[in-house]
Design a protein around this nucleic acid. Structure first.
Lengths: 363, 363
DNA sequence: CACGGCTATGACATCGGTGTCATGACATCG
DNA sequence: CGATGTCATGACACCGATGTCATAGCCGTG
């Protein structure tokens, strides 16, 4: 591979002059510039980032640690929105920055993370992004203090800058949109309470009801997912939960499910019970998993989990921290998402007297 | 970030001695070695790959160009097996090599490829992998001759080393397995003839029939996919093709579909026609798309598209070419895959007199 | 005891860029 | 006309590793 010295010799100038032509950081005579450019083209010269990095002490690299590549799409059977969307957001946001993204995949083995971080430090990455597959707490090994770190879709207790989905607000928006359609008996079959998101969404559910002056009925709130659920047990639990809320003296007019996958299963369960959607019962999901929401019939109303936006926001924050224009936030940054309306929620006639109690519908 | 000089000073030795401790390439007194290791630990020293790359003229980097990250999983609606599986194979094979994988995503825009190659050349990648989303011809911009290039799932006419799925043998194996189950009227509703794979698979289909002394019936071979098919037109075409072969005087006992997605659609179409699977009709797919084959009821028999193996093979070849242990092959290397048996193919009673005509069932 | 051979270590140059400073050729101005 | 300033260019050092070569100390041997 040709070097700047080869170019300099071919053009009959000094290496420094070639450098000036390349970077345009000092005036160069037109004639000289042309000669240099000609030599560059003839030799197929491409500057070496390694040499530049050495001199400038800036690698221009950003590291990304994720399991999204090795685990998608196999895993999509038993989980929510693929975290690959976060990676996509990161890639898009990184493109414009001129930095190069180094992607390391854990293959699902957390114990490989220290080795991956080590490799990134050898490459002198200027920043590091860690992407989790769902909203949760993590504990990463320490990284060199000069390396900026941002967590996406996860957080820790060391105050590491972190970008999280706003699960509270998402559920508030979703329930508000249901209330706006006239629903007042709103059931919530949530994910396992082991998930960080669950308690946040339950708070959102309760607060949305409360702002609309609807009394919270504990019978309408059922965790209907078990951790590490294999398919059979998971379906059984969901069946039971649905059975329970539909058998109530005053059954719900709409059921919110913990995620789109649960809602999809519920479509089957409800149909086999002879329930017509959305005429007999309305249904809502969570995640905004287009592959599910748009494919189901009727299309599914769902609160969008803003994964791409989380990736973009995390990247913007990291780049800001790297070039000093952004301060590391002490609290997690929450990213909200809209409600994707589908045909699974029916408009209910609302008694005139209750119109005043309808809550906000937008965030 | 600490340098080797900082370590040397802290340990009271020369930088060269620290280097020797790091690389173990020359004897160092135990006492000295301990002092150096202690200094390394205290300073948190990590050697710089940039400096090493400069000195050794070897970057230890391999570049990968793909659209698999930005386009999966959105796109899985209207395509075959996600090419992300190829990337997964590459990652797995690369791990052991000690080299670092640089992943660049095209975002589906081929015109960005030259820029990506340029960036890779600036990083002095030792090798370059190009992954296509389906078996097809490509034409890449020229790369520096010192950079080894391997194409995965695609080929060109410049004789660039290339790893391809063995579509011919895959279809042969699939049809053989059907023949072994007693089928002799075997229809093939293929993908669009614009696909490279289609003609290869059709050859395989015909040859498998011929080896089993089954006469080829042109009425049983129907291209049933249009390019850029939107969903409605695609379903319509498929419906018509199914209608056509089932209306034949002597209808098939099994239909092979161009891919698993087509077979999945066919499940719905056939059921709405009152055809019971596999009792009235057997069905086979192509791709081995587990998410589809294992979820459908009955589970779908499918020829596996060996994407992970293609990624692994491409990586092995590239690494071999880099360290000089492998010659660049002049012809594409074909990777075969097994037939994944499902419950969608029924065992037919075979007349005793025809037993001798059963073909091979394994590759 | 002198010399060759071996061990452990260090001095120095080098890889490919770029920051710093110097310098030669002109142009400008009092 | 000489002093000063500007422009275009080059010489040189440096970034952090490591290959090459040199050398000091020690051993064994004739």
């Amino acid at each position: 591979m040709a070097t700047i010295y080869d170019v300099a010799r071919a053009a009959g100038v000094s290496p420094k002059t070639v450098s000036r032509v390349l970077n345009g950081d000092a005036p160069v005579k037109k004639h000289t510039k042309d000669a240099v450019n000609k030599a560059i083209a003839e030799l197929g010269y491409v500057p070496s980032t390694a040499a530049r990095a050495m001199r400038s002490n800036k690698s221009g690299l950003v590291g990304l640690i994720t399991g999204a590549i090795s685990l998608s799409p196999n895993r999509s059977e038993n989980s929510g929105l693929p975290d690959l969307y976060i990676v996509q957001g990161i890639q898009r946001a990184m493109e414009a920055s001129g930095k190069t993204l180094l992607i390391a995949d854990t293959g699902g083995q957390m114990d490989r993370v220290p080795q991956l971080i080590r490799t990134f430090e050898e490459h002198r990455v200027e920043g590091l992004l860690y992407v989790a597959d769902h909203h949760r707490e993590v504990s990463l090994p320490p990284v060199s203090p000069s390396t900026k770190l941002v967590l996406a879709n996860c957080f820790d207790h060391q105050g590491t800058p972190s970008i999280l989905p706003n699960d509270y607000q998402g559920q508030v928006n979703l329930v508000n949109s249901l209330i706006a359609k006239g629903h007042r008996r709103i059931a919530y079959l949530s994910l396992s309470t082991h998930h960080e998101a669950t308690s946040l969404r339950i708070s959102g559910y309760k607060d949305a009801l409360s702002s609309a002056k609807i009394e919270f009925d504990p019978n309408l709130l059922v965790p209907a997912e078990i951790e590490n659920s294999d398919d059979d047990a998971g379906v059984q639990l969901l069946w039971d939960a649905i059975d329970r809320v539909l058998s109530l003296p005053e059954p719900p007019t709409v059921i919110c499910f913990g995620n789109d996958r649960m809602a999809m299963r519920a479509y089957g369960i409800l149909r086999s019970r002879g329930v017509s959607l959305p005429d007999d019962l309305s249904v809502a999901g969570y995640d905004g998993h287009r592959l599910i929401t748009d494919t189901l019939y009727p299309t599914l109303t769902s609160a969008e989990l803003p994964y791409a936006a989380i990736g973009i926001r995390a990247t913007e924050l990291l780049l800001g921290m790297i070039n000093g224009t952004a301060e590391a936030p002490t609290d997690p940054i929450l990213v909200g998402g809209p409600v994707n309306p589908g045909s699974s929620v029916k408009d209910l006639p609302t008694p005139i007297t209750k119109l005043s109690s309808i809550g906000r519908t937008t965030l």
